[in-house]
Write a protein that binds this DNA or RNA. Structure first.
Length: 570
RNA sequence: GGCGCGGUAGCUCAGUUGGUUAGAGCGAUCGACUCAUAAUCGAUAGGUCGGGAGUUCAAGUCUCCCCCACGCCA
C-alpha cells in the first residue's frame, strides 16, 4: 500500500474563490486524493485557509468585524462551499491555528540558529490616525508623473509608472484617508534565501519529472538578474503570528508578526497537526518527518502557476534551512489559468463565476466534470458558457446519463427490477471486456501520472464503449428472437453501470453514488479485471431505476447565465 | 522596454527524445437504429501545424528573424 500526502494551495481568506481558483488546485487535488483512496492507498489530503496579512485586516474592517471573528466566519463559509463541491479534505485547517503559530515560530528559530536570518532596518510609512504602518499599496496620492489622483504607493494604475510611497504628492492612507503620515524606521527579519540558492538549485535539478512550467518558473527566479533574493519575513501588523524565536522572545521584534508568505506554507505541516488533534491524537509526524515514519510517503502539491515560486523556492528554503528532516515535496503539479469568455477570471474585479454562484446553478458534478476534463493543464484554457453547455450535455447527460437510463428502463419493462440471468457471454461480450481492460489500464496509468484531461478522455471512452456495445448487441432486437441472449446483454449492461460508478467516482462522486445506490452495491473495490467486475451483479440481484442522472442545460439557461455573469459581481 | 508561455482542423485542445498518409472530442453533413434524457452508433468532409529563412536524408518538433495574443517584471 502506498502512502500519499496531498496538499492543495491554500485559498486566501478574504472572500469566495472563482472557478479558475478551484480548477487550479483544490479540484485536481481532490481528484487525485479520491483516486488514490479508491485504489486502496493511504491518503492524507490537506487544505486550509490562508488568513494573515493586510487584505484580511481590511476586509474585516470593511465588514465591521474584528479580524479574528471575520476570519472564523469566512473559514466556515469556505469550508461549506468546499464540501458542496465534494472536496474530500481530511482536514480543512487555518493558518491562524495555534499549531501553525508554534511551528512558524519554531522554523524561524531554527533558521536564526543556522545563521539564515538577518535584520534589516528599512523606512516605511506610518499612519498616525490608523495607528499602523501602511504597506505601499495602501497609500494613495497624486502621481508625480501623470497627475492621476488615485495612484498607489507601489504603482500608478493610470500611467503604470512604478513608484515609491514618498514620490506621491499629497499622500494619504487608503485605509482611513488620513494625511497624517510619516516615514519611520522599522526593523525587519530577512530570510537569506540567497545563501540557500545552490542547495535549491541542486534540489530542483533532481526533479526531472516535473512539468516544464514548474521548473522553468523556479529556474527563472533562481538565475535571473542577481539570482534569488533575500526576502523579508516580518511585517508591522497586529494580525498574524507574533515574531518569536522558537519559544523565546525575539528582542527588538516586539509587536511584529511574520509575513504571510512565510507562515502560509508552513500551514501545510501544521494542518496535519490540526488534523491529528481533530482525530483525537493521531500521529501526524509519520506524514511529515522522514525520521518518524514519513520515508515512504509520496508528497504531491497542487497549485496554480502563480504559486510556483513559493512552493519551489521559498517554502523549500524554509525547510532546508531548518536542518531538520522534514518531508520535501516529491511531485508538484501546477496549472495554468482558466479564462472566462475571452478575458480573465478576476477576484478583485468580480469577473467570472464564483464557487457559491456555481453551486446555486447546478450540482457539483457538472462543474467537476467540465472543469477537470477541460482543465488548463498544459496551456491556458477557455471557459465559455457555450462550451460548458455542450460538454456537460454531451458527456454527462447523453453519453453517461442516457446509458444508465436506457439500460435500466429497458430491463424494467422486459425483465423487471432484478438482474436477469440469460445465457453465458459470447464473443461480442468478450471483445468488450478486452476493450475495457485495456482502457481501464490506460485510465489508471493516466490517473497515476495526474494527466487530468487525458484521464477524463479515457473515462469518457469507457462510457462510450457501453453505448457502442449496446448499439451492436441491440437487446431490443435480440429479445424478439432469443430472450435468453437479450437477458444476458442487459445483465452485462447493468453490471457496466456498477463498474462505471466505481471508475467515475473520482470525477463525479455524487452521480457515482447514485449509480451505485441504484445498482444496490454498497461496496465495490476498484476493478482490476473487467470480466470479474461484470459478474459482480448476479442474476436475481435487485436494483432500481434511478431518476435521470443529469438534466440538460437548455439554450435558455445558457443565455440567461451568460447574461447574468457578463458583468461584475456585486 | 526586458523576460516567460503560447500561436496546430469552424470551436476547445493532444502531439513523447526531429522519422512513414498531422490526432481527439465537440460542431457540420450523410447513413443506421428506435431500448433511452429528440438520446445512441457508424461514416464523411475540414489543417501548406502564425509568416520567412536556415540546419538535416528527414521539422509541427531544432536554430535565427519577424508578426500576433496573453502573462510576469522593472
Amino acid at each position: 500500500m502506498q502512502r500519499h500526502l496531498i496538499t492543495s494551495a491554500i485559498p486566501y481568506i478574504n472572500g469566495i474563490k472563482h472557478l479558475g481558483n478551484l480548477v487550479g488546485s483544490q479540484l485536481p487535488a481532490d481528484l487525485y486524493a479520491r483516486y488514490q483512496r479508491a485504489r486502496g492507498n493511504e491518503v492524507l489530503f490537506l487544505c486550509a485557509t490562508d488568513e494573515h496579512g493586510t487584505p484580511a485586516e481590511l476586509a474585516a474592517a470593511k465588514a465591521g468585524k474584528p479580524v479574528a471573528e471575520y476570519c472564523a466566519e469566512m473559514h466556515a463559509v469556505q469550508a461549506e462551499i468546499a464540501e458542496g463541491f465534494g472536496l474530500s479534505f481530511d482536514h480543512f485547517g487555518r493558518s491562524s491555528s495555534p499549531q501553525n503559530h508554534a511551528l512558524t515560530q519554531h522554523f524561524a528559530g531554527r533558521l536564526a540558529d543556522a545563521g539564515l536570518i538577518r535584520e534589516v532596518v528599512e523606512k516605511q510609512v506610518y499612519s498616525n490616525a490608523d495607528g499602523r504602518f501602511l504597506p505601499d499599496r495602501y497609500i494613495e496620492g497624486t502621481c508625480p508623473n501623470c497627475g492621476y489622483d488615485k495612484a498607489r504607493g507601489d504603482q500608478c494604475e493610470n500611467c503604470t509608472k512604478q513608484l515609491d510611497p514618498t514620490d506621491l504628492i499629497d499622500p494619504r492612507s487608503a485605509v482611513s484617508g488620513s494625511t497624517d503620515l510619516e516615514v519611520r524606521d522599522t526593523k525587519h527579519l530577512y530570510l537569506r534565501q540567497s545563501a540557500l540558492k545552490d542547495d535549491l538549485d541542486a534540489w530542483i535539478d533532481s526533479k526531472s519529472d516535473w512539468p516544464i512550467l514548474t521548473t522553468s518558473i523556479a529556474k527563472k527566479w533562481l538565475h535571473d538578474g542577481d539570482g534569488l533574493q533575500d526576502r523579508g519575513i516580518t511585517r508591522d501588523l497586529d494580525w498574524g503570528i507574533p515574531v518569536r524565536r522558537g519559544d523565546a522572545d525575539w528582542p527588538g521584534m516586539e509587536g511584529k508578526v511574520f509575513y504571510v508568505w512565510f507562515d502560509a506554507p508552513i500551514e501545510y505541516i501544521a494542518c496535519a497537526d490540526e488534523w491529528a488533534q481533530a482525530q483525537g491524537g493521531a500521529d501526524w509526524q509519520r506524514w511529515w518527518r522522514t525520521d518518524k515514519g514519513a520515508k515512504d510517503v509520496r508528497y504531491t502539491q497542487f497549485m496554480g502557476k502563480d504559486n510556483v515560486p513559493f512552493h519551489t523556492l521559498s517554502f523549500p528554503a524554509t525547510i532546508l534551512g531548518s536542518g531538520e528532516p522534514w518531508k520535501m515535496v516529491d511531485h508538484l503539479k501546477s496549472f495554468n489559468y482558466l479564462n472566462y469568455e475571452g478575458g480573465q477570471f478576476s477576484t478583485s474585479q468580480g469577473r467570472g463565476v464564483f464557487m457559491d454562484q456555481a453551486l446555486a446553478l447546478l450540482p457539483a458534478d457538472y462543474w467537476r466534470w467540465w472543469l477537470l476534463s477541460n482543465c488548463p493543464e498544459t496551456s491556458d484554457t477557455e471557459f465559455t458558457w457555450e462550451l460548458f453547455q455542450q460538454g456537460v450535455n454531451k458527456d454527462l447527460a447523453d453519453v453517461l446519463g442516457n446509458f444508465v437510463s436506457r439500460v435500466t428502463k429497458f430491463c424494467r419493462s422486459k425483465f423487471g427490477e432484478t438482474v436477469p440471468e440469460g445465457c453465458a457471454f459470447g464473443p461480442q461480450e468478450n471483445a468488450l471486456i478486452e476493450t475495457l481492460n485495456s482502457r481501464m489500464d490506460q485510465y489508471c496509468q493516466l490517473m497515476d501520472k495526474m494527466e487530468v484531461r487525458k484521464s477524463a478522455q479515457e473515462l469518457r471512452a469507457i462510457w462510450v464503449a457501453g453505448n457502442e456495445y449496446l448499439q451492436t448487441a441491440a437487446p431490443w432486437a435480440t429479445i424478439k428472437e432469443d430472450e435468453a441472449k437479450a437477458a444476458m446483454q442487459i445483465r452485462l449492461g447493468l453490471n457496466l453501470i456498477a463498474l462505471y460508478a466505481v471508475l467515475s467516482a473520482p470525477f463525479i462522486p455524487t452521480a457515482s453514488a447514485r449509480m451505485q445506490d441504484a445498482m444496490n452495491v454498497p461496496d465495490m473495490d476498484w476493478p482490476t479485471d473487467a470480466g470479474e467486475a461484470l459478474a459482480k451483479l448476479s442474476p436475481g440481484h435487485a436494483f432500481s431505476v434511478p431518476d435521470n442522472l443529469f438534466g440538460k442545460i437548455s439554450d435558455d439557461d445558457r443565455s440567461d447565465w451568460q447574461e447574468r455573469f457578463s458583468g461584475i459581481r456585486t
